[in-house]
Amino acid sequence: MNVINRAKNMILAPKAEWDIIDGEQPDNAKVITGYVLPLAGLAAVAAFIGYGFIGMDAGFFRIKGVNWGIYQAANALIMGILGVFISAFVIDALAPSFASEKNMGRSVQLVAYAYTPAWVGGLLNVFPALAFIGALFSLYGLYLLYLGLPKMKKTPEDKQLSYFIVSLLVMIAVYVVIGIIMSALVMPTMGLSMSKDILQSIQVR
């Protein structure tokens, strides 16, 4: 699998690319190591550089520093990998409720490739002030997810919209939960605190 070509085709010609993926044998290890890790890894590196050395103003304080860079990089990488697996697991479990095919391998393909715009947009984290543009770009992934359901999950047309909406809610919930856990467990161990950064920023100014 050529990661660059797959990512480019998913963004520019998603319908044709889903047809190609539909003809591929599902291989979770190959998708994760050959696609998810490279893209999520690049987004993580961008986040480390952006938040570690460039930083951004956030209201009354500034987010910048190596620890912040590590935290944001870990977020991008961990949420990328766990997000794919957990979302795929739940979406696959829901498949029978929407007359769709229950196949974990296909679910991993569906979620991993639908996340493509999010990881490509994540490269903008190298300039944190532009990160919101990358976040907006990730919304295109919703369209990819919608297009992929009939191919990857054999979802009937009359069930496609409802399955898409439920799948979307699942993915949002997964990312919120992972984000909360990361904030609760990782930030304290790295000595990161929003309130502390606010006080330091006010003192500096």
Rank of each mutant, 00 (worst) to 15 (best):
K159G: 08
P156A: 01
L94H: 06
R106F: 08
F85P: 03
I20T: 14
G52D: 02
I91Q: 10
I86C: 06
N9P: 07
V170C: 05
Q203L: 11
L77W: 09
Y163E: 04
V3F: 09
V170M: 04
G148V: 04
I4M: 11
E17S: 00
I165H: 08
S138W: 01
L124E: 05
A58P: 07
G41F: 03
L12N: 12
G34I: 03
N5C: 01
A46C: 14
A93Q: 13
F89L: 14
I81N: 12
R62F: 07
T189K: 15
R6M: 11
I180V: 15
L199E: 15
M171E: 09
V120Q: 10
I20R: 10
N125S: 13
M194L: 15
V177R: 05
S107F: 05
G59S: 11
L123V: 14
P128F: 02
G122T: 05
T189L: 15
A99T: 13
V204G: 00
M79Y: 05
I20K: 10
M187T: 13
K15V: 09
L161I: 13
G83T: 12
K64G: 03
K151C: 06
L199Q: 15
D158A: 14
A29P: 06
L169I: 12
A184L: 10
V36K: 04
P14R: 02
M10S: 01
V108A: 04
A40V: 09
L124T: 13
